[in-house]
């Protein structure tokens, strides 16, 4: 490996760009492949999507594909009870978690001691946070004033998962509001609501499990 390649890998991670490094195992020759370049190569595309480094046989011989994906991130809109259950599970699964809630009474360090906490409105902070393909977002406040602007920003981004808390009825009126803002049905289909896999979850910890399961499914299998 050359120092130039090493620095390119580190820079990509700092800038949250997904890349792969392909090493020819007999010659030691290496090349860096960007996410865009990998899109046209089924093997690399799959390796990046599933975050899976590994050895592949090619016509040229054996190669090792190293996947360097940015760290997973989760933005939770709403410093609420379900957030308190989701946070430790998401952190255990490798996510950097940030909770955003403009309501001072909710977003307190006492209630959320071990997580990044932002007391601003979602539309004030989210644009600067570069929501990318390794990012998920949950809208949990039940308050359209807070949730909707966050969902609008999420829909315009490449986030791999958008979840919104609420019943089927709540979800239907949410979609109507967003449609009125100009979003197409295909785009709105990205919002998972009611949130989480249907596992009959009762109470915040079990709902958190269903959310984590749905997020993981979208991350690993797409959708």
């Amino acid at each position: 490996m050359t120092p130039q390649l090493l620095n390119a890998v580190i820079t990509a991670r700092t800038e949250r760009r997904a890349i792969a490094v392909v090493t020819h195992l007999s010659t030691g020759a290496q090349r860096l492949v960007t996410r865009a370049e990998a899109a046209s190569d089924p093997v690399l595309d799959k390796a990046l999507r599933f975050d899976k480094s590994g050895v592949e046989q090619t016509d040229d011989g054996e190669v090792f594909i190293t996947i360097h994906n940015p760290a997973l991130r989760l933005f939770i809109i709403g410093a609420v009870l379900i957030a308190q259950s989701v946070i430790p599970m998401a952190q255990a699964a490798g996510y950097d978690v940030t909770v955003i809630d403009p309501r001072g009474a909710f977003a307190t360090g006492a209630r959320f001691p071990n997580v990044a906490l932002k007391g601003e409105w979602p539309d004030e902070v989210l644009p600067a946070l570069h929501m990318d393909q390794r990012t998920a977002i949950l809208a949990l406040t039940h308050d359209p004033k807070i949730d909707d602007p966050a969902l609008e920003i999420a829909l315009k981004s490449e986030v791999f998962y958008i979840g919104a808390l609420g019943s089927k009825k709540t979800q239907a009126s949410r979609l109507e509001r967003l449609k009125a803002k100009g979003f197409e049905d295909a785009a709105l289909a990205r919002i998972h609501g009611p949130i989480g896999l249907n596992i009959g979850a009762v109470g915040a910890p079990e709902i958190a499990i269903s959310i984590m399961a749905e997020m993981t499914k979208c991350l690993r299998l797409g959708g």
């Binding site: 090493l6 890998v9 580190i10 991670r13 195992l25 480094s53």
Partner: peptide, 24 residues
């Protein structure tokens, strides 16, 4: 911090280094 960060830091200190990676 990953092993690659350490590698970069050591390189900048002028140390000669090698990297080992589990491939299978």
């Amino acid at each position: 911090t990953t092993a690659l960060d350490t590698a970069s830091q050591w390189l900048s200190q002028g140390r000669k280094i090698a990297i080992a990676t589990v491939i299978e």
